[in-house]
Amino acid sequence: MSALLDGLRVLVLEDEFLIAMDVEQLCRDNGAADVIVAGTLSGIDLDGSPGFDVAIVDLMLGGVSTLDLARQLRARAIPFVFASGYSSTDDIVAEFTDIPMVPKPYSGADLIGAVAAVAGREAAPQA
């Protein structure tokens, strides 16, 4: 039986250090081939990136919105999920209705299920 994220390259945008470490380990434990963690938007260059198969995006990094980066991910057809404590913003409801939101605090199973689903691996678990 293969892991849900087997072989995937995952970008994790998370500014809370302990959460970022947990998510990185969770992705690796579920078979991710590579996990890149970024706590700020500086240095994130999707054009020059090594390539990602899927991303986990917190809505705010150090008080800065990640919605522009989410738009770039969408334009490049890189699947992603939002994983954030900011779950009720109008911008997301209006523009990203098709993107799963995994609200904090989340279980590891919920997050990995959502990531696997957008990556075409398995349906997200039902709440």
Rank of each mutant, 00 (worst) to 15 (best):
L8N: 05
V10A: 04
V10F: 10
V10I: 13
L11Q: 00
L11T: 00
D15M: 03
F17Y: 13
L18M: 15
L18G: 13
M21F: 13
D22N: 10
L26E: 14
C27P: 04
R28F: 14
D29Y: 09
A33W: 12
V35L: 05
I36G: 05
I36D: 11
V37R: 01
V37H: 03
V37I: 11
A38Q: 09
A38M: 14
G39K: 03
T40W: 11
L41V: 14
S42Y: 14
I44E: 01
I44Q: 04
D45L: 11
D47P: 00
P50S: 12
D53N: 04
A55D: 00
A55Y: 02
I56W: 01
I56Q: 04
L59F: 15
G62A: 02
G63A: 05
V64H: 09
V64M: 09
V64K: 11
R71W: 06
R71Y: 09
Q72D: 08
Q72G: 04
A75V: 04
R76M: 12
P79V: 09
F80M: 06
F82K: 11
A83N: 06
G85M: 07
G85Q: 06
Y86G: 04
S87T: 10
S87D: 14
S88I: 10
D90A: 13
D90F: 10
D91G: 14
V93W: 13
A94T: 08
A94S: 11
E95C: 13
F96W: 12
T97I: 05
T97C: 12
T97E: 15
K104C: 05
K104L: 12
Y106N: 08
Y106F: 15
A109S: 14
L111V: 05
L111M: 15
I112Y: 08
V115N: 07
R121S: 07
A123T: 15
A123C: 05
A127W: 07
A127V: 09
